[in-house]
C-alpha cells in the first residue's frame, strides 16, 4: 500500500524579495536574485510550491578581515587585502551569484573610513563587479547611521539588500533604503517577538513588508543552532498561517558563526565541514540566503541545494 502523505494547505505566502536590478530596471547588475515566495514549509515539495532555491552569498569585506580564520586567509591569499580582487575571485573563480559586503573599515576601531570614502568605494565596486550586492554596516550604530545612507545613495537603483536594522536603530537605515529603492535586513537577537515587532516598525515607516528580509541571528552547529532553527520554524508556521508581519525570507550569517567555533579552529577540514553543516541545517529550517566564506563549503552547500531541488 502506498504511503499517504499528510499535506497541509496554507493560506499564507512568503514574500518574494528581488536583489539586484538590471539595466532595464534602472540598475547595472548582470542578473537578479530572487528569494522567498514559498507556500509551504521548507522542502516539502509535494505540499506546495517553493519557487526559489536558497542562495549563497559570498562574504567579502572592504578591508582585510580581522575575524577570518587562517584557513580562510590562506584560501583567498593576498586578495583579502584588495576587496576588488577578492570580489573578482568570488565571482569568477567560485561563481558567486551574490556578494555580501561588510563595511568593516568604517568602524571607529578598524579604520574609521568617512561616509564619502565609503560611498566612493561602493561606486567603484559596483562598476567592477556585476552580481547583486548585499551591504552590511560595521555594527557601530552611530557610525553606521552616517555611513549607510552614503552607501545606499551610492548604490541607488541597484536594488541592494542593506543591513542590518535593529530594534533600537532602524530609522535612518529604513529612510535610506526607502529613498534609494533597496530592500532591508531586519535583525533580531534570536527572538521571534522582536523580529515581528521590528517588521511592523519598519513597515510603519512606509517600507513595505515585501522589502524586508529577516536576519533571525543564528548560532553555529553545536552553538545554539537549534534555537535559531525553532524560531525560524515558528515564524514560518505563523507566516504560512497568514501572519504577513512574519512572512519575510531569512538571511543567515552562517560563516561568521561557524568559523568562530573551536571545532572549526581545530582543523581546516573541520572548519569547512562546520560551515557546510551549519548551512545545510539552516536550509532545512527555511533559510533563503546563506552568507558563506569558504569556497569548498560554498560548493558543498551548492551541491546539496541542487540535489535537494532535483526532486
Amino acid at each position: 500500500m502506498e504511503t499517504q502523505l499528510v499535506l497541509e494547505k496554507w493560506q499564507g505566502v512568503i514574500s518574494t524579495v528581488i536583489i539586484g536590478a538590471k539595466k532595464e530596471e534602472g540598475g547595472s547588475r548582470s542578473d537578479t536574485v530572487k528569494i522567498g515566495g514559498q507556500i509551504t514549509m521548507p522542502l516539502l515539495f509535494k505540499e506546495g510550491a517553493t519557487p526559489n532555491k536558497p542562495r549563497i552569498a559570498f562574504e567579502i569585506s572592504d578591508i582585510a578581515p580581522f575575524d577570518f580564520d587562517e584557513e580562510l586567509i590562506a584560501t583567498y591569499g593576498k586578495a583579502v587585502n584588495d576587496p576588488f580582487a577578492w570580489a573578482d575571485i568570488c565571482v569568477n573563480e567560485y561563481k558567486a551569484g551574490l556578494l555580501c559586503l561588510k563595511m568593516q573599515g568604517t568602524h571607529p576601531d578598524f579604520g574609521n573610513k568617512s561616509p564619502e570614502s565609503a560611498a566612493k568605494f561602493i561606486s567603484a565596486l559596483l562598476s567592477k563587479v556585476k552580481v547583486p550586492l548585499i551591504i552590511i554596516g560595521s555594527g557601530d550604530d552611530a557610525k553606521d547611521n552616517l555611513i549607510m545612507p552614503a552607501c545606499s545613495e551610492a548604490a541607488r537603483g541597484e536594488r541592494c539588500l542593506i543591513g542590518c536594522a535593529v530594534q533600537d536603530n532602524y530609522k535612518t537605515l529604513v529612510a535610506s533604503v526607502l529613498a534609494d529603492g533597496h530592500s532591508i535586513i531586519a535583525e533580531s537577537p534570536i527572538d521571534i517577538n522582536i523580529a515581528k515587532q521590528l517588521n511592523i516598525l519598519i513597515s510603519d515607516m512606509g517600507l513595505s513588508l515585501e522589502r524586508i528580509v529577516i536576519n533571525p541571528t543564528i548560532g553555529a552547529l553545536g552553538y545554539g543552532l537549534e534555537y535559531a532553527y525553532s524560531i525560524m520554524e515558528r515564524a514560518r508556521l505563523a507566516a504560512l498561517s497568514g501572519d504577513k508581519t512574519l512572512a519575510s525570507p531569512f538571511i543567515c550569517f552562517v560563516a561568521q558563526e561557524a568559523w568562530k567555533t573551536k571545532e572549526a579552529k581545530a582543523s581546516s577540514q573541520q572548519g569547512i565541514i562546520w560551515e557546510t553543516l551549519t548551512a545545510t541545517s539552516l536550509i532545512q529550517s527555511g533559510a533563503d540566503l546563506l552568507v558563506m566564506r569558504h569556497p569548498k563549503a560554498g560548493q558543498n552547500v551548492s551541491n546539496y541545494i541542487e540535489a535537494l531541488f532535483k526532486g
Partner: peptide, 15 residues
Amino acid sequence: KNIYCDSYLEAYRKK
C-alpha cells in the same frame, strides 16, 4: 493563536 510582539494589536489588524 498569534505570535506576540509589542504592537500585536496593530499586527493583527495588518493581516
